[in-house]
């Protein structure tokens, strides 16, 4: 059976991991390649690298980093952060990235999704959607959750799939950082209403939260700090999920 995926997310700035990773038995926790290799060994199913560098040097640094990751890591990985052009994606894929994720640039210019899908195939186009619970319902926010786009999360999810997205990375800004669990309702609703896989993100605090979101319909679940700080070790998490009848690779 196809298994549910567990995806650690690494934030990258100027080619280094940020967010104060705390690991023993690791020489340089700021080295994305070393951290990625450790996660791969521990059973991560995929990795996401989110580049938050904001300089002109960005493209070159990111290209070199992607190449190093691809050289040493033998599981699939997605690269996201500030991608807005077909040329950016071509460089990342040529250097060994398996997928790219686009977010604000797709909201700004939805045609980008179709351009990427027709050029490289839907399988490598992940659209990241940041959503917040409002009194009217779940809406899409851009610019790190500061700008209300006026879009409904479910409508936007359906649209990006129609335009060629091969996967949705759904982050609940309302849950992110709370460690109180994923946004089960909107994750389940979107997952039931689109044909492509949905990665749930935001709010993971313990093993039970992963079980809950998979039972709600997520195809994959992403988290960052709880893995970096070893609050929820990967191996134990996968064992827990397998014991609870979730199809999982372990």
């Amino acid at each position: 059976m196809l298994t549910k995926r567990i995806i650690p997310c690494l934030d990258i700035k100027n080619g280094r991991t940020v967010k104060g990773v705390r690991f023993e038995n690791i020489r340089d926790a700021g080295d994305p390649v070393e951290l990625a290799a450790l996660y791969a060994k521990q059973g991560a199913d995929e990795l996401v690298f989110l580049d938050i560098t904001a300089t002109n040097e960005k493209r070159k640094t990111l290209r070199e980093l992607v190449r190093e990751i691809a050289r040493y890591i033998d599981i699939p990985f997605t690269v996201g952060g500030g991608i807005s052009a077909v040329e950016d994606v071509e460089v990342l894929l040529q250097n060994g990235a398996d997928k790219v994720s686009v977010n604000s640039s797709a909201i700004h210019r939805p045609e980008l999704i179709t351009e990427l899908a027709s050029r490289f195939g839907s399988q490598c186009v992940t659209v990241a959607i940041d959503t917040k619970s409002t009194p009217e319902g779940w809406k899409v926010f851009s610019k790190a959750g500061t700008v209300d786009t006026g879009l409904w999360a479910l409508d936007w999810a359906k649209e990006v799939v129609d335009r060629g997205a091969g996967e949705i990375l759904l982050t609940s800004m309302s849950n992110d950082g709370t460690k109180n669990g994923f946004a089960l309702d909107i994750t389940g609703e979107i997952s039931r209403n689109v044909i492509v896989p949905v990665i749930a993100s935001g709010g993971a605090g313990n093993e039970q939260h992963f079980l809950d979101v998979f039972e709600a319909g997520a195809d994959a679940a992403l988290a960052a700090s709880i893995f970096h700080f070893q609050e929820v070790p990967l191996l134990g998490l996968k064992k827990f999920l397998a014991e609870n009848k979730i199809d999982i690779r372990c």
Partner: peptide
């Protein structure tokens, strides 16, 4: 078939 998520993406036996 449309009964499953497409693409078939991830680890399978």
């Amino acid at each position: 078939e449309a009964a499953v998520k497409v693409p078939h993406m991830g680890w399978n036996n």
